[in-house]
Computed example of a mutant assay.
Amino acid sequence: MISLKRQKEYYQALIAKDSQYEGVFYVGVKTTGIFCRPTCSARKPKFEHCEFFTTAQQALLASFRPCKRCKPLSHPNQVSTVIQKLVEAIEQNPEKRWKDKDFAALSIDASTARRQFKKRFDMTFVEYARARRMGLAIKQIRSGESVIETQLATGYESSSGFRDAFSKVMGAAPTKLGKMHLLKASWLDTPLGPMLAIASEEALTLLEFVDRRGLEREIERLRQKTKSAIIPGRTPPIDSIEGELKSYFKGHLSQFKTPLFLLGSPFQLNVWDGLQQIPYGETLSYSSLAAKLGKPSAFRAVANANGANQLAIVIPCHRVINQNGELGGYGGGLTRKQWLINHEKQHRV
Rank of each mutant, 00 (worst) to 15 (best):
I83C: 07
I83R: 00
Q84V: 05
L86M: 15
L86S: 03
V87T: 14
V87E: 15
V87H: 01
V87G: 00
E88H: 03
E88Q: 07
E88A: 09
E88R: 01
E88P: 00
E88Y: 01
A89T: 05
A89G: 03
A89K: 02
I90T: 11
Q92K: 05
Q92T: 07
Q92W: 00
Q92F: 01
N93R: 01
N93F: 02
P94D: 03
P94R: 00
P94T: 06
P94Y: 00
E95V: 03
E95S: 05
K96T: 09
K96H: 14
R97I: 12
R97F: 04
R97T: 14
W98G: 05
W98V: 06
K99S: 07
K99L: 10
D100C: 00
K101S: 08
K101Y: 03
D102W: 00
D102P: 05
F103A: 05
F103K: 01
A104I: 12
A104R: 10
A105Q: 13
A105G: 01
A105L: 14
A105E: 15
L106G: 12
L106K: 04
L106P: 04
L106A: 07
L106R: 04
S107W: 07
S111Y: 11
S111L: 14
T112D: 14
A113K: 08
A113M: 14
A113I: 09
R114Y: 13
R114N: 15
Q116K: 08
F117D: 07
F117Y: 06
K118D: 07
K118M: 14
K118G: 09
K119H: 08
K119W: 04
K119V: 12
R120L: 06
R120K: 13
F121D: 15
F121G: 02
F121E: 15
F121S: 08
D122E: 13
D122G: 00
M123Q: 13
M123K: 07
M123E: 13
T124S: 15
F125T: 13
V126Q: 13
V126W: 02
V126F: 07
V126K: 06
E127I: 10
E127V: 06
E127C: 08
E127P: 06
A129W: 04
A131T: 07
A131L: 13
A131Q: 13
A131V: 03
R132K: 13
M134S: 09
M134E: 10
M134L: 14
G135D: 11
L136T: 07
L136K: 11
A137D: 05
I138Y: 00
I138G: 04
I138K: 01
K139Q: 12
K139P: 00
K139S: 08
K139E: 14
K139G: 00
K139M: 08
K139T: 15
Q140L: 12
Q140N: 09
Q140H: 08
Q140A: 14
I141M: 12
I141D: 03
I141Y: 02
I141F: 05
R142C: 08
R142A: 03
S143D: 12
S143P: 03
S143I: 01
G144I: 06
G144D: 07
G144A: 04
G144V: 10
G144T: 06
E145A: 10
E145V: 02
